[in-house]
Design a protein around this nucleic acid. Structure first.
Lengths: 199, 199
DNA sequence: CCACTAAAGGAACCGTAGTTCCGTTAATAT
DNA sequence: ATATTAACGGAACTACGGTTCCTTTAGTGG
């Protein structure tokens, strides 16, 4: 065996999986600010030296977790109607953010992103993937002339999410289904009015 | 002098002012996660024991800072046109979030709010004040029948801010004047379409 | 102006997150 | 199979954020 060979197989992969899982659990329970790498190591049944050596900081660990989360994409619905699709997207986001596990996890990774530049990049990549997944339903609507020519699909999808994240992080207003439907309706109304034309 | 008298005058007030100012500076430079109360004490030229005794935790200090920030309200513009007023509001938020001092400060207090329940309440109070300040321009537009009867004024103002905070915290897309104008246009289009009617 | 004590300050102390050291385990090339 | 060494793990160590203890300063009522 030559010098400098990486060994991604078997143990290394198992350790990574266990640590990322444990990191997610810890983030859900304590949030990013109280994330203790020794605690993560304990949960993963792994030496804390290993966690410090491979990731080094809480932010780096969350960065890796985010890239892992981005890799597992969930398929969008396709009802054939923009209004329905946007509403489905809004409700998915709403359910995710109010989920007992996903909600705290998302808060935590968003906090991590505002604390660390690399984690921020990972978060942007994560959302770029999610937005690209849903953009086609807007593209199709433009082709069907349900929305104005030149409408920026990604911008419409982002517009659906924005009010929900605003409630989660800023205003603290209830994140219920009504809020989701309203967010979808608002994005659709603005899109129809031509607000998201790139030209 | 009787037992149990509080002494808010003179020194106590001076210390509070100096510490809050120092806390703001420290938050701008390091962010909430790297906020060190001993460092804040040093900047304020105050014993660190004093900071730990009066505030105790970084979150409590930020909570006090937020209540202090809420007390100083900035007057809104009143151009007589909803479109103009909403655009002015959007640009104010955009300029605030991209300001070299205010931007990092807002990120920091938002992070603090997601880490601590009391800080979150303080943040909600802060925004409630800001939103109440701007709501009248929407109310007037409803009275002038420029917007549908029953439109929730606060919801319209929140809709203007939401996409800008989304860019700041989630997507990382540029927070320029075009984004501000688009946010104002979208909120207005949705309001006109009746999305924000409370009924 | 004086007595009283709330509030501030300095310094020594403590607990724990993070590091270092070195021996052990197991992935991979031959 | 076996040798090689990447990667893991336990334990001792360190540094620093946070606490405790006691002294000093200065608001406030009389």
């Amino acid at each position: 065996m030559t010098v400098g060979t990486v060994r991604p197989g078997g143990r290394t992969a198992r350790v990574r999986e266990a640590v990322l899982k444990a990191a997610g659990d810890a983030l859900v329970e304590h949030g990013f600010d109280r994330l203790d790498l020794a605690d993560v190591a304990r949960r993963a049944v792994v030496g804390k030296t290993t966690v410090y050596r491979r990731w080094g900081t809480a932010a780096a660990l969350v960065t890796d977790l985010l890239d892992d989360m981005a890799a597992t994409s969930s398929p969008r619905t396709d009802t054939g109607s923009v209004a329905e699709d946007l509403r489905a997207n809004a409700r998915l986001v709403q359910r995710t953010l109010t989920d007992p596990r996903q909600g705290p996890l998302f808060r935590a990774v968003i906090v991590a992103a505002t604390c660390d530049a690399r984690a921020a990049e990972a978060l942007h990549r994560f959302y770029a993937v999610r937005i690209a997944e849903w953009a086609p339903c807007v593209e199709q609507a433009v082709q069907r002339s349900e929305l104005p020519e030149g409408t920026d699909p990604a911008e419409v999808i982002r517009a659906v999410s924005a009010p929900l994240y605003y409630r989660l992080l800023i205003s603290g207003d209830p994140l219920d289904e009504a809020a989701a439907d309203r967010a979808a309706d608002a994005a659709l109304a603005a899109a129809r009015a031509g607000t998201y034309r790139s030209a």
